[in-house]
Design a protein around this nucleic acid. Sequence first.
DNA 1: ACAATATGCAGGCTTTTACCTGCATGTCAA
DNA 2: TTGACATGCAGGTAAAAGCCTGCATATTGT
Lengths: 104, 104
Amino acid sequence: MDADKVFKALADPTRRKLLDLLCEQNGQTLSQLCESIDMARQSATQHLGILEDASLVSTVRRGREKLHFINPVPLHEVYKRWVRKFEHQRLNLLHDLKKELEGK
Amino acid sequence: MDADKVFKALADPTRRKLLDLLCEQNGQTLSQLCESIDMARQSATQHLGILEDASLVSTVRRGREKLHFINPVPLHEVYKRWVRKFEHQRLNLLHDLKKELEGK
DNA sequence: ACAATATGCAGGCTTTTACCTGCATGTCAA
DNA sequence: TTGACATGCAGGTAAAAGCCTGCATATTGT
């Protein structure tokens, strides 16, 4: 998993919206997704390409259509590597911060 | 919490490294952090400014020094809103994907 | 076959990002 | 008080990001 690609992919609101849309209904085509994001189709293609390159989305060609599916694995990896780490130390970190803000 | 600022802040490897450094030793000064990131001090300042603007880092002035502390709250918010959502559906999503890749 | 549909590809434009250098300001300690 | 140290601030540049238009290709249904 390329953490940098995943984080960069998540950094754009349009791409997060695309993930949300796929979470509501998995397997949508490019055209379907385009109806929800108010943007030229070609721009959506770019965004989906970035999501796919980060392995956050996998696609399947069916005739002239392209179906898009969420791949939850890299998000889980990010969670394990980044979020959980800070979650574990969360109370300690909050304590540090509070103490310092109080003027120690 | 501004989710967009948080995601954009996390999108840069240098900034993620800064968070890691602070996780190892909370409350470091700008100069201390600079020793670890091979970059002009002014660039580090910019990165830290972005982290601070996203509320991922809080700072305290002590004399001529500026101490940097991790604020774990926005990361927790991101976790609740984004990661957990996909975690809950993780097995379903994996199932969708597998079935489609098998040619249905 | 052919018109409509779904997507791919190339190039251009504008804004943002991530660096940098140079100089200014504030603080400490001898 | 003055030299060394820590940080702030103001540009400037090159690369990347995000959007677009225009045209090409592939598939479907009548």
